[in-house]
Amino acid sequence: MDGEHRASGNLQSRVVHESLILPVRIENLVYEIGKARIIDSLNLELSAGGCTAILGYNGAGKSVLLRLLHGLLTPSSGIIRWAGDFDPEFVRQRQSMVFQSPVLLRRSIEANIRYALTKRGFKGEHRAHRIETVLEQTNLSRIRHRQAMVLSGGERQRVAIARALAVEPEILFLDEPTASLDPAATIGIEDILVRARNEGRKLIMVTQSVGQAERLANDIVFMHHGQVTEHSLIEEFLATPKSPVAQAFIEGKLYK
């Protein structure tokens, strides 16, 4: 399984979508809630394509960074500089996000996907085509009319990913998408993500699982106390982590 994913992860040749908003450069990013600094003068640069995994202990600021990039939160200070000088709304239209526990609308699977497409301005033939494509990709065609409220955790997450992919995002943010799923469901989700990555979409994924990062990611961003302690290729990160925190994280130890 692993080897196959890694092999198909040789991406540059398979980019099918034009990059408009990537690469992105983050400079001195700060996010505060009251007096607490959740993101503390963070600097980072992310390139187009491939999968970036953001690792780190709970409270490192991973999810907040994802929300800042997606425009759901506004930085206290600092700059997120997307390639090209686009309007923030345009930037968000090029992105979509899958949350740890997705919120689906009280309607059928297909209607959930159609809803997102409609709100993003997809119409007629194109919309119908996108619905068919992502239902196929996420293996949901057979149960497309089922009500979202009666689905299992794995199915719900697949619907959320289908909905996010349907709108043809340049960047797909994933916030621990398999955190509450069993191993079989996790493999199902990872297969879908590999295919999305191979279509040339950029995946930026927060995860707690080093194994998952190894299976999916090209590069690793390791966060601690609201800062990036290292950004390196996955092989490098696993072989020679640059900080004791990262070392402890890889070994699955408590870090004080």
Partner: peptide
């Protein structure tokens, strides 16, 4: 409270 992020993410 439940839907806010999801809907803003979609752009609603």
């Amino acid at each position: 409270a439940d839907y806010d992020e999801e809907l803003r993410s979609i752009g609603v």
